[in-house]
């Protein structure tokens, strides 16, 4: 066991995947010679050489297309789209080609590709480099969405994503890169679709991913002082979603608060709430609540961005309202 940063865990996962499987190759803008814009691929070119770790032009459509074609032919492409916001410029590949290829061909092909993207606000990157865009893909069956919050999850889930026979969008939150956590000496892949109950509690279920999971944990500590025990669940993957774990928790606590770093409109949290209400209204003792961002672009100013991101304080307030309903 050793303490590593989120960044180190990602580099190790990619290195181990490249080591394990000759079919894996890593490519994207400045991922090779420069070691990545956020130094997330540092040292991999030196270890694996220019055949398997490759720089590309600034051409997101070409990157995604290359991943698709190579995956169809049996390679395991590991592509990087530098900022998740840039998924918009290659949306055709992600929404029209990747998730439909197997289906449209009647199952003739597999799509074992992984696309890594940096998401997340909090760094003052402004409206086009800060979004958590997972919701864009929620309405596109055929994709898997992975949202790790800790170094151990980043490692284990990335290993599973690369091994997975289906296409995986893997989101790396920029505010987490320097956070630290324990990683075993021989870490195992973590299956996709398995939530982690990060904290046990009896009064309310709080569901959150990535940075919001950490905010939720701090909120839970504050709430505990006030005598409210929150159960915090990190789904870790939005597709597939471990609905059973969340539903079982809500059945026990009777109360649900979802915290998400995005506007609530058209969000995974809203989708989760709709399903829980539809299927287990009788278990609910209070209306399920969403703590999300306002329906605005992400502002640049630190003073405004701080207001945009769901804060620990807002989570505490909402949980108190929900528990006292």
């Amino acid at each position: 066991m050793s303490t590593v940063t989120f960044r180190e865990a990602l580099i190790r996962a990619m290195g181990d995947a490249l080591e394990e499987d000759e079919r894996v190759f890593l490519f994207g803008e400045d991922v090779a010679a420069a070691g990545g814009s956020f130094k997330l691929t540092e040292g991999l070119l030196e270890r694996f050489g220019p055949k398997r770790v490759r720089d590309t032009p600034i051409s997101e459509q070409a990157i995604i297309g290359t991943a698709i074609g190579a995956a169809v032919m049996g390679l395991r492409p590991l592509a990087e789209i530098m900022f998740a916001d840039f998924a918009a410029v290659c949306f055709d590949g992600i929404a029209n080609e990747i998730p439909k290829y197997r289906y449209m061909t009647g199952g003739q092909v597999s799509m074992p590709l992984t696309i890594r993207m940096c998401n997340g606000a909090g760094g003052g990157f402004g409206a086009q480099h800060s979004q958590s865009v997972e919701n864009w893909f929620l309405n596109v069956p055929g994709l898997k969405l992975v949202v790790p919050a800790t170094p151990a999850d980043a490692y284990g889930l990335l290993r599973s994503a690369i091994r997975d026979p289906d296409p995986v969008l893997f989101f790396e939150h920029k505010s987490l890169f320097n956070t630290k956590g324990e990683l075993p000496d021989a870490p195992a892949p973590i299956p996709l679709g398995l939530a982690e109950t990060v904290r046990h509690g009896e009064h309310v279920t709080v569901v959150a991913t990535q940075m919001m999971r950490h905010h939720a944990m701090r909120a839970a500590d504050e709430l505990a002082v006030a005598g409210i025990e929150a159960e915090v669940i990190d789904p870790r993957t939005l597709v597939p979603l471990d609905y059973a774990t969340i539903a079982a928790s809500v059945d026990r606590t009777g109360r649900l608060v979802v915290v998400q770093e995005c506007p609530n409109s058209g969000s995974w949290g809203a989708t989760l709430v709709a399903r829980l209400v539809g299927e287990r209204l009788e278990h609910l003792d209070a209306p399920p609540a969403l703590v999300g961002a306002p329906d605005t672009p992400i502002p640049y100013s630190g003073a405004l961005e701080e207001l945009w991101i769901p804060s620990v304080e807002r989570i505490v307030e909402q949980v108190k309202r929900t528990v006292s309903y």
Partner: peptide, 24 residues
């Protein structure tokens, strides 16, 4: 016959990956 594509031009980038696999 790896595919027929209904988004105009959408398959040109995909051809790169198909060719890349042979090169790789």
């Amino acid at each position: 016959a790896v595919g027929s594509f209904a988004i105009v031009g959408g398959h040109l980038p995909i051809a790169l990956g198909v060719a890349f696999e042979a090169q790789y």
